[in-house]
């Protein structure tokens, strides 16, 4: 196998790995937005940000 071909094959394999990792993420039933919101809510609790506290109250239906 020539060096060029080896580089091309490695590059394609790396891109395939990125595709697999992304597909694993895309196929997931868990919603990232919820997790991000959980992080936001924990930060808001510690920061006592009135804007965020109000937003979270609305999001929680309070």
């Amino acid at each position: 196998m020539t060096e060029n071909r080896r580089h091309a094959v490695t590059g394609i394999l790396l891109l395939a790995l990125v595709a697999v990792l992304t597909v694993l993420f895309v196929k997931s039933p868990r919603i990232t937005a919820e997790a991000s919101m959980r992080f936001a809510s924990s930060a808001a609790e510690t920061e006592e940000d009135p804007d965020m506290a109000e937003l979270l109250m609305l999001l929680n239906g309070e």
Binding site: E3, N4, R5, R6, H7, A8, T10, G11, I12, L13, L14, L15, L17, V18, L21, T22
Partner: peptide, 18 residues
């Protein structure tokens, strides 16, 4: 640039970025 180098740089770059 040679396509082999382009593919390798893209692969490293995409994986490193992710």
């Amino acid at each position: 640039t040679a396509m082999s180098s382009v593919l390798l740089i893209s692969g490293f770059s995409a994986l490193g970025g992710l």
